[in-house]
Write a protein that binds this DNA or RNA. Structure first.
Length: 218
DNA sequence: TGCCAGGCCGGGT
DNA sequence: ACCCGGCATGGC
């Protein structure tokens, strides 16, 4: 992977779109619920699911800890994959209570590598979900890689489209200052870019209209 | 109407 | 080490 001035690309995106105010949630716990529910799912559907939970007073670790997955599933129905996601929520909550007494503050009070390993040990939390939790809930500096990020940058030849997640992440982290604000905004801007320009998973989208944003260092 | 969305897991080769 | 099917709703 070639060295590029990622900060210049970030600046261009920020100038074009402005601050994105991520993550769209009121509390760190709500962030975590959102990261699990949005797996391969449109955010609008996730909001419906979260609103259902909120309306039932179920947006707390304590309350969800008491509920069986069977009761959670129907509430999160709009987010899709509701059965498996109900289990994934329970897997995380159980981990939180078994290892940190149900306290996010305690769970977050460790170094990033240990926290990431812990999160990845939970069935249903993969790399992007773990990193989103670390960045947007714990507010610790880690770069979140998602489908849009890979599509945009691989199509502009920064790296191969089938590059491993951890390598792509390393590429960004080694070429940016390890700043929570930058990592937060950069990922959010890339999602915004992907949505606005329909950066869909189609071969036809080989030439996407984002060159002005990336053409900084060519 | 079909295709896609801010992934992840488990089983097969 | 890859590759693939399954998981499911709602919007365009």
């Amino acid at each position: 992977m070639e060295k590029k001035d990622l900060k210049a690309i970030f600046d261009k995106l920020f100038k074009a779109f402005g601050p994105q105010y991520w993550w769209p949630a009121n509390t760190p716990f709500e962030v975590i619920i959102g990261t699990i529910l949005t797996q391969n799912t449109n955010w609008g559907n996730v909001e419906k699911a979260i609103n259902n939970l909120r309306a039932r007073g179920c947006l707390s670790a304590h309350k969800l800890h008491q509920m069986p997955a069977k009761e959670i599933a129907p509430l999160i129905r709009p987010s899709g994959y509701f059965n498996i996601k109900a289990k994934r929520l329970k897997n995380f909550i159980n981990f939180l209570f078994n290892h940190h007494g149900g306290s996010l503050k305690k769970m977050f009070n460790q170094d990033i590598d240990s926290l990431r390993r812990e999160l990845l040990s939970v069935n249903g939390i993969g790399r992007e979900t773990a990193d989103s939790i670390i960045l947007y809930a714990a507010e610790l500096p880690i770069f979140v890689v998602d489908a849009y990020t890979k599509r945009a940058f691989s199509r502009h030849k920064f790296f191969a489209k089938d590059s491993d997640y951890d390598n792509v992440q390393k590429f960004f982290m080694e070429n940016l200052s390890k700043d929570v604000k930058i990592f937060n905004e950069f990922h959010a801007l890339l999602v915004r870019l992907g949505k606005d320009f329909c950066l869909k998973n189609k071969p036809k989208c080989e030439v996407c209209p984002i060159k002005p944003f990336l053409k900084v260092d060519f």
